[in-house]
């Protein structure tokens, strides 16, 4: 816990306000740390992740005597000090070779942790692929392949999916430039087979190349950009249910305001209900019939009223009137 700072000037007040919780949050900052023993491979991997995550990423170079699964206090301190809620801790030991620990925090407290052991044989850095790289700060497309990522119960793979998505999704955009769809992160895992170690998580990044196809949609080809990493899953610390529920809460201000009498049905059609006044039925035009037609002769209003009762031409009243007129 850092000491409480009382702002003494407008600049420090603004800086503190930036750190406060907001309804619409800023993109999460990632902090990359290394342990006391950190192999060359892990360092290269951290450097690559840093270059992918720019500009919302901080990388520290000094060694830190941290063991996240034993003691979380220094991780929480770093998280608060740097206002970073995603941390990647690189470490190497005989028991946990080439280990990357992905850590998420909520309100500067550890939310969940996942250990991934990098496979040194298949690891390739970003620069080992000799091709053009994508621009900095673009929102990537992300794909997950494999049944393990869609498990109904939470396991290391669903956690990995959530953490990788959180790590690489970039800024939340309401619209995206079509030219910005330049690269795709592809994360896959094979099937789980009994009696064999759990399958590796394969992390690949591809550049997207589009070709004319003669149709409206383009033909898509991919070209590997790097880095290429294969991970074994290590220790997992899942989030406490109450903390996760708290973290997933949506602010009331962001809920769409319901407008009265306007609904959207399951087909996505917008339906509005309009209230009209009472209809005036007295001026209603009903079916036209010869018998109901007003004659050309009855100009006289008095006569017309008397005529209403008898339609029949030979009614006694009509006869009497005709006699009078004559």
């Amino acid at each position: 816990m850092l000491r409480q700072i009382v702002p003494k000037n407008a600049r420090s007040k603004r800086a503190l306000e930036k750190k406060e919780p907001h309804v619409v949050e800023n993109p999460k900052t990632t902090l990359i740390l290394r342990g006391t023993s950190c192999s060359q491979i892990v360092q290269l991997a951290l450097a690559d992740i840093h270059s992918l995550k720019r500009p919302s990423c901080i990388k520290f170079t000094k060694k830190n005597d941290i063991h996240p699964f034993e003691d979380v206090s220094s991780i929480e301190f770093f998280s608060e000090k740097n206002d970073a809620s995603l941390l990647i801790f690189g470490h190497n030991s005989k028991k946990r070779p080439h280990c990357l620990t992905l850590i998420r925090t909520h309100a500067y407290k550890i939310l969940d942790m996942l250990e991934l052991y990098l496979d040194p044989e298949s690891f390739r850095t970003l620069n080992q692929f000799k091709n053009a790289k994508c621009a900095v700060g673009l929102k990537p497309m992300i794909t997950f392949s494999g049944t393990l990522f869609d498990s109904p119960t939470s396991n290391a793979y669903t956690l990995a999916k959530s953490v990788f998505l959180d790590l690489f999704k970039g800024h939340d955009a309401t619209s995206i430039d079509v030219e910005g769809l330049q690269y795709m992160i592809h994360i896959s895992a094979e099937e789980e087979v009994d009696g064999q170690p759990p399958p590796q998580i394969k992390f690949r990044i591809y550049l997207i190349r589009t070709k004319r196809s003669g149709q409206k949609l383009p033909r898509v080809e991919v070209e590997e950009m790097g880095p290429r990493m294969d991970f074994r899953v290590g220790r997992v610390r899942e989030a406490e249910e109450s903390v996760m529920r708290e973290a997933l809460k949506k602010p009331k201000q962001l809920e769409p305001k319901t407008k009265k009498n306007i609904e959207t049905d399951i087909m996505g059609d917008k339906i509005g209900r309009i209230h009209l006044g009472k209809q005036d039925l007295s001026t209603l035009q009903t079916r036209k019939m010869k018998g109901l037609k007003r004659g050309r002769n009855d100009i006289d209003e008095d006569n017309a009223t008397t005529l209403v009762e008898g339609d029949d031409e030979t009614s006694p009243k009509r006869e009497r009137l005709e006699q009078l007129e004559a």
Partner: peptide, 19 residues
């Protein structure tokens, strides 16, 4: 050319609690 994106449906944890 811009594509309007819908609101994301995959829930991800917030960085800090709701103010």
């Amino acid at each position: 050319v811009f594509l309007p994106l819908p609101a994301p449906s995959t829930p991800l944890p917030r960085e800090k609690p709701v103010p």
